[in-house]
Design a protein around this nucleic acid. Structure first.
Length: 160
DNA sequence: GTATTGATCTTCT
DNA sequence: GAAGATCAATACA
């Protein structure tokens, strides 16, 4: 299963909104490990959210995957999610993990080998920066990145 | 169409 | 004891 990543948010240790703010805990240990791994955490007690750990210095930085444009094995993702609408399949961190079947067991898994695969886009994607979603602290940092014009982002029409 | 609320885990106060 | 990187169902206009 999979798709094109069309929405992400950045989190670094020096950031009140980040889980790594204030140092390691049992939950966020993966954020302080090697880059290129998956950090999965439980959100609001209900959902799973997936991040790509992205700092070589084991400092605690990651990128939250917020939305995909579904491209592979769409039927499988549909049956997992129980929805028909493609724009609702992966448009949000909790939805994305549910569609891909990612859960707490994948926390710390390496992304450079099976069952995962990450590839670069062709050329430079056209993205827009905007305020991050669902946070109250550090909201002034424009660290949410959405693909321009995509209808698969978690909030329609991010301001340009 | 917008607003409110329930589900319920981890951390912080 | 409260809040949070959320979603979906329900209640209201």
């Amino acid at each position: 299963m999979g798709g094109v990543i069309v929405e992400t948010e950045a989190y670094v240790p020096d950031d009140p909104a980040s889980h790594s703010y204030g140092g390691p805990t049992a939950r966020n240990a993966t954020m302080f490990g090697p880059a290129g791994r998956l950090y999965v955490y439980r959100s609001y007690g209900i959902h799973w959210c997936a991040n790509v750990v992205c700092d070589e210095e084991d400092v605690g930085a990651a990128v939250l995957l917020r939305a995909l444009e579904p491209t592979h094995r769409i039927e499988r993702m549909r049956s997992r999610r129980g929805v028909d609408d493609l724009t609702l399949l992966c448009s949000g961190p909790g939805r994305l993990t549910q569609a891909l079947g990612v859960s707490g067991g994948h926390d710390g898994a390496a992304l450079d080998g099976p069952p995962f695969e990450l590839t670069r886009p062709n050329g430079r994607p056209d993205v827009v920066a905007s305020p991050r979603v669902g946070i109250t602290r550090g909201a002034d940092r424009l660290w949410r990145y959405t693909q321009t014009g995509s209808t698969y982002v978690s909030r329609p029409r991010p301001r340009a």
